[in-house]
Amino acid sequence: MEEELKDNANPTILQLSDLPSRRRDEPSKKRDAARAMLFEDLVPSYPDPFSSGLPSPTSSEEDAKVYPSDDVEEIDEQEIYDLIAHVSDPEHPLTLGQLAVVNLPDISIQSSAAPSKSRITTARVLLTPTISHCSLATVIGLGVRVRLEQALPPRFRVDVRIKEGTHSTADAVNKQLGDKERVAAALENRNLMGVIGKMLEGCT
């Protein structure tokens, strides 16, 4: 049976709801006192186009949540986690987040030491294969890399590696993942890109 060909047929998995996520900030308590925050959606509120400008396409409530304020929200570890946690495993219909291949504490962002001008930033992701002889570690690493290169602005340098001590041939895999030319060559391979394309399908 095909199942027996898999490196790890019965991996440990995490519940979706337990994966780290950005919980919405506590809804602002300082909102319009007159509406007494209880049951905010109970009474419809319609903007008055004559005084306050014009109707907005989504209800103003929702906007307030999605765009809480004018502050700049920097790209952080959680955001990178959200970008790659939904990449699916080539063997299982499960995501790298569920399989704990990517973990929030293993993602780090380092801005370059030089002051603001260049804004070059490095995003490092350490992967934990489900078992130490996982033959697909390189493919998973490439998938993560491709995803991040598509989704992060150009000022980011992407560094994807296998976490130390979690894989028997970690050095070889890291060498492959870190070598630009080898990555580029691998991505010319249509079969490989097919597999990676499938892994990225679930990313939204």
């Binding site: 765009y67 700049v72 598509q150 989704a151 992060l152 602005p153 000022r155 990225l200 990313c203």
Partner: peptide
């Protein structure tokens, strides 16, 4: 679209990623 990937707002960046992936 790389400009929008660096937008100041997370919600905008999320749409930018989706959009860029669709075009790629």
């Amino acid at each position: 679209l790389t400009a929008a990937l660096d937008d100041g707002k997370r919600g905008v960046r999320r749409e930018a990623v989706r959009c860029r992936v669709a075009w790629i």
